[in-house]
């Protein structure tokens, strides 16, 4: 019995660890919480902030809408847009279609930001989707 329990626990521990250790182009420090961004928008502290949607829609006010970054044309559009932005600006990108592990857009977009040398590149931390983590919390939205 003890042996079975040990095997079950090891399996669950390994499964969880493998999921958690997946290498991502962003670091935990580069994630911006939805709460922080919502506060900045509500307090009108967005002068040094560029908000870019690389998902299917723009939900957050003041967003530059690019479209899904897994589309090559949209990725080109993103890079072209970024060329006109100072590298010192805080650039926060978001998708929000799905959790990060399923999202096809956040990785190519964040990698582009990094490759272009943005020192303050941020990814909006949306663990579920833009509905659950933004709209359901009544944070400021378009429409």
């Amino acid at each position: 019995m003890k042996y079975i329990l040990a095997v079950v626990m090891t399996f669950l521990f390994v499964t969880n660890s493998v999921t958690a250790q997946k290498a991502e182009p962003w670091t935990p420090k580069q994630l911006m919480s939805t709460e922080d961004l919502a506060k900045k928008i509500e307090n009108k502290q967005t002068d040094n902030l560029v908000i870019i949607s690389i998902g299917p829609d723009e939900v957050i006010p003041g967003t530059i809408f690019i479209g899904p970054a897994n589309n090559k044309d949209n990725l080109k559009k993103l890079k072209s847009k970024l060329k006109g932005i100072s590298k010192d600006k805080e650039v926060v990108i978001y998708c929000g279609c799905c959790p990060f592990d399923r999202c096809p857009n956040v990785r190519p977009a964040f990698t582009a930001l990094k490759e272009m040398g943005f020192k303050n590149a941020r990814l909006l931390d949306i663990p579920h989707n833009i509905k659950v983590d933004w709209l359901d919390k009544d944070y400021p939205s378009t429409d």
Binding site: P56, C97, K131
Partner: peptide, 9 residues
């Protein structure tokens, strides 16, 4: 309406 759809809500 993407995730803003009232159906999702």
């Amino acid at each position: 309406k993407y995730w803003k759809s009232s159906i999702a809500k």
